[in-house]
Design a protein around this nucleic acid. Structure first.
Length: 628
RNA sequence: GGGCCUGUAGCUCAGCUUGGACAGAGUGCUGGACUUCUAAUCCAGUGGUCAAGGGAUCGAAGCCCUUCGGGCCCGCCA
């Protein structure tokens, strides 16, 4: 097992001692010591009892320590009291090392049961299928994918959805471009179709609306025809959006992201879901038909507060608004209503994960992609709308169902990067805009990163063949991008700078991957599998102990990360693990250690590290190449 | 006007949920370490009134209040 055992042992012993001494019950903390010289684990019980017992914290800690000395347990070797009042513990490293290292070789090491196999749905990506994915979408995708991976590790039964908004205005725009704007259906050269639609057709056509009112009129007509499912226009729209989607998904797969099911908005609109939900909301009195005032003739959600406006769900012309389309989808995700869809196979993804799509045609296949908890990953500019949806869902009072909006701040472009897109911002960063062509495509970033990582890998490993080098370069490029999107807090804006994103040193994905490559090299050169059935008494330098401890913390970080829906905690852990290893690597020789026993023990440690890092990195969707 | 987020080293950020021991990284800058398991590395130095003020507490970067700065959202757009 892991460091968790050490913590739990100390906790239960102190609880018992405190009871035996007749102390009042307090919620004391067992935490990692803040500095190595204090030991490994600290307890603050002295501070908490100081007031009720009218004694100095150190005095109380002293009494507890005296009792503790009598039966130290399996994992503690030393107890000390710091003058400040803290009660500090030093681990029994031999026991700890054996315990940690043996469990680290298990297949499911790091797993921790938070979810109890509860069904949970994560929806992310959900990009309009009229353009390529840009760096802002990547943050959404990587957060969603990482959270899904972590929840899976924390024993949730996870399904991942991607909502395809194929019936909106943005789609109409590119259709106008093809039908009336004079754009050829095929891009020139080898341009990806999604890049063509977004970078060329979409940007130009929105620019032309201003000068050509006739085009803008066409848009309204196209939009209307798109919503009528059987029209020629709808068929054409379907063909185009599917081609864009296909290209978008290639980018997602390139990033190591996979899904379980694609939901098409057009189908939700045409299905009976919408009318059912509408009736339900009407009958429950959640929405009202406005008889007077500026919203006359609209179905609205009444606002609770004075200052907030009522929210219109159905316009006076009978057409639903943007937010209205999200409500039936939310109920579908939670499985509140009967599922109107059939399912068909869309694609086979890596690791044999099948990607399904919804369909209204009777394929005979019924599947279930719903969950008791739904997590919708959307940037926090949508917080207001998401709050309304959450409220409506909770009004439905379906037992045990929970709708959660996982928000995050947006990605902006640095002033320098904006300048390369011909926008002078005067040193300020700027919000991206698909409409204005102000964005950096994900594929482009990966390509540029790939060139750099390829050159590096080739320089370091001239003997490797081309195919291997290209693969390593791509893995490192993806690692760099994914890590940069996840290491920061969700509430912090990421200012994307092209030049800066090419720096691969320090707190980056490649730094962590490099630690793995180093460990692999040692194991490779050792030429044998280490024997774990030995004593690890000899691993007694600070570097070795520190590495053992860090390895042993994996499951605690999985638990925290899952409970807080905080992917950065795992990023942080991967970095800490790599730092521990690199420090070990620089100071401790493995293959040239003084005795065969020492070599074996250190090889075990390297092996444990490697196994743990690979598992932790896989939660971030980052591959760990053996060479780089 | 209302709501959400944010302010910690020159720059980018951890730490804040759950208050406690001298406030940590990366980057930058200065210097050092490759005939050695890959230097995408390591080691040392440099660098901070934790935006400001007040409050409760034995104790605040953290909790509460006020103020100031920055971002975002408040449409019969999506």
């Amino acid at each position: 097992m892991t460091l968790r055992l050490l913590f739990e042992e100390i906790r239960s012993n102190i609880q018992k001692i405190s009871n035996d001494l007749g102390y009042p019950t307090v919620e004391f903390d067992i935490s990692e010591a803040s500095k190595p010289e204090f030991g490994d684990v600290s307890c603050n019980i002295g501070f908490l009892l100081a007031k009720p017992l009218k004694k100095r914290p150190s005095e109380i800690s002293e009494s507890v320590a005296n009792e503790y000395q009598k039966h130290k347990g399996e994992f503690v070797s030393k107890i000390t009291v710091h003058p400040s009042g803290y009660l500090n513990f030093v681990a029994n490293y031999e026991t700890l090392a054996r315990s940690v290292m043996q469990s680290s070789t298990e297949q499911n090491y790091g797993q921790f049961n938070v979810g109890n196999n509860t069904k949970i749905v994560v929806e992310h990506t959900s990009v309009n299928p009229n353009k390529a994915l840009h760096i802002g979408h990547v943050r959404n995708i990587i957060i969603g994918d990482t959270v899904a991976r972590i929840l899976h590790k924390a024993c949730y039964d996870v399904q991942v959805l991607n909502y395809v908004d194929d019936s909106g205005l943005q789609v109409a725009d590119i259709i106008v471009g093809f039908k009336y704007g004079g754009f050829a259906k095929e891009p020139l050269q080898n341009q990806k179709f999604d890049h063509y639609c977004g970078d060329v057709v979409y940007v130009s056509i929105t620019e032309r609306y201003e000068k050509e009112p006739s085009l803008a009129e066409k848009r309204a007509i196209v939009l209307k025809e798109l919503e009528e499912g059987s029209s020629e226009m709808a068929k054409f729209g379907d063909e185009i959006t599917r081609r864009v989607l296909e290209e978008q998904l290639k980018t997602c797969w390139r990033l190591g992201v996979t899904y379980d099911c694609l939901n098409f908005e057009s189908q939700i609109v045409r299905s009976r879901l919408w009318t059912t939900v509408l009736e339900k909301m009407k009958s429950m009195g959640i929405i009202y038909l406005e008889n007077e005032g500026k919203n006359v003739g609209c179905w609205v959600i009444k606002s609770d507060s004075e200052v907030e406006e009522d929210k219109i769900l159905i316009r006076s012309n009978g057409i639903a608004t943007y937010i209205a389309k999200d409500i039936p989808y939310a109920t579908w995700k939670l499985g509140i209503l009967e599922d109107p869809f059939y399912y068909k196979h869309y694609a086979m993804q890596k690791n044999d994960r099948i990607l399904w799509e919804t369909t209204l045609e009777n394929t005979g296949t019924k599947l279930n992609f719903t969950g008791d908890t739904v997590i919708t990953v959307i940037d926090s500019r949508q917080s207001r709308l998401q709050k309304i949806i959450t409220k409506i869902i909770s009004d439905f009072k379906s037992k045990g169902k929970q709708y959660t909006h996982l928000g995050y701040e947006s990605v902006t472009l640095s002033s320098d990067t904006a300048k390369t897109l011909n926008l002078e911002t005067g040193g300020k960063s700027v919000q991206m805009s698909g409409r204005k062509g102000l964005y950096v495509n994900a594929d482009y970033v990966l390509d540029i990163l790939g060139v750099k990582t390829y050159e590096e890998a080739k320089k370091r490993n001239p003997e490797l063949d081309e195919v291997t080098l290209v693969k390593i370069a791509e893995q490192v490029a993806v690692g760099a991008l994914r890590y940069s999107m996840i290491k920061q807090d969700l509430d912090k804006i990421i200012t994307f700078d092209m030049a800066e994103s090419l720096s691969l040193e320090g707190d980056t994905g490649p730094y962590i991957q490099y630690a793995h490559a180093r460990s692999m090299r040692i194991l490779e050169k050792a030429g044998k599998t280490p024997d774990f059935n030995v004593s690890f008494d000899n691993l007694n330098t600070e570097h070795e102990r520190n590495l053992v401890k860090t390895i042993g913390k994996f499951d605690m970080h999985v638990e925290d990360s899952a409970k807080n829906l905080s992917p950065k905690m795992i990023a942080r852990y991967c970095y800490d693990l790599a730092v521990s290893f690199n420090s070990f690597y620089e100071h401790i020789k493995v293959l040239t250690a003084e005795s065969p026993e020492m070599i074996n023990a250190r090889l075990c440690l390297v092996w444990s590290f490697k196994e743990t890092l690979v598992k932790a990195l896989s939660l971030l969707g980052i591959d760990a190449p053996a060479r780089m």
